[in-house]
Nucleic acid binder design. Sequence first.
DNA 1: TATATATGTGAATCGATATTCACATCGAAT
DNA 2: ATTCGATGTGAATATCGATTCACATATATA
Lengths: 198, 198
Amino acid sequence: MVQKKPTEERREEIITAALDLVEQKGLDNVNIANIAAAINLVPSAIYRHFTGKEAIIDSLIDFVNKALQDNVSYTLRTETHALARLKLLLDRHVQLFKEQRAIPRILFTLLSSDKESVLKKKMLTVIACYLDKVGFIIDQGRKNGEIENIDASAGALLFLGMVQPLAIMAQFEDNAIDQYPEKLWNIYLHGIYRSKDE
Amino acid sequence: MVQKKPTEERREEIITAALDLVEQKGLDNVNIANIAAAINLVPSAIYRHFTGKEAIIDSLIDFVNKALQDNVSYTLRTETHALARLKLLLDRHVQLFKEQRAIPRILFTLLSSDKESVLKKKMLTVIACYLDKVGFIIDQGRKNGEIENIDASAGALLFLGMVQPLAIMAQFEDNAIDQYPEKLWNIYLHGIYRSKDE
DNA sequence: TATATATGTGAATCGATATTCACATCGAAT
DNA sequence: ATTCGATGTGAATATCGATTCACATATATA
């Protein structure tokens, strides 16, 4: 018999193990047996801590959401100018992807799942929320003249457009995630930047 | 007993039905029974025309590839200037997404599947190929001064970055896919455009 | 019309996976 | 130390989906 641990601790372990496994096999190929084995438990033990698989994935979404929101908070706290904020947020986002490669896979899987899925709707909400925050930063930059008079939500969408294809590229070449962000940012910046002389 | 049809015809029907189902339920939730039912066949009949599920998905990837390549060809044939080509390609790409909503789901699902999956590798190749073509157009534009001296593959990646988030947005609001492309293009264009007076 | 071949059917098999449950045991509180 | 509730175990169940196969039949061709 394995050591017994309080449910809070186990939940952490399960989530962590699940993230690891998602990174390796993709969300669809992760099953209760895998997760249990990864932390030396028996499948049925998982049900002491989660009501089922859905609840685990639900927690994974919470994890993603928290990571994204933390990045936003950090960015707002650290920088004051809109462009600096966007650049920092991009860097943090890329860094996050590097450390937690499970994140884009969770995202992709849920986005491609059944329309009516509760989990998908939740994931969409998380993204919408993130886009809102980015759009807010852009709006701020527009008001103080740092940024061109662009549509804020389109700017936010294209911001996402920098990081999403990165997640794809990272699957070809490992170094893509190191080389591209700077290049993408240059184009993006040029796209939204308001030259002083105009 | 249902009418018998030549295998070529059935293969078409199967692919078409599969695309429909993917659009509704996502690739992971489409199964042989579904596909068979959609064309009034019995599951085992499917195996007269495809060796198995993998082969069907393989054909779906071929379909996606063909659609993308057709767009590229059309674009190269129709326009000569790089910027015009990119704009046209974007429009066609958006149009394609509108008509075949299954495409992004196929893409997302395969990207989030197992690392070692043959199908995933194939999908990645398709994307890489598309990116190459876009990069080629950008390079051409760079050489004749239409486009800033940007990294072509980064430009191609951000081009993909316009359409990918669209596929996400389209799941919130149906009209997103009508409103955003123009706005995204404005930012992107501004990002890559080389002003004459610089 | 007869026959051969391609196509369709229904039942059966096989494996994977989530989930449940009765039972065992650990650890904390008394 | 005893007890009780929380945690872990192993076996069983249930479902779902892919695939196979022996058999049936439609369609083209001779």
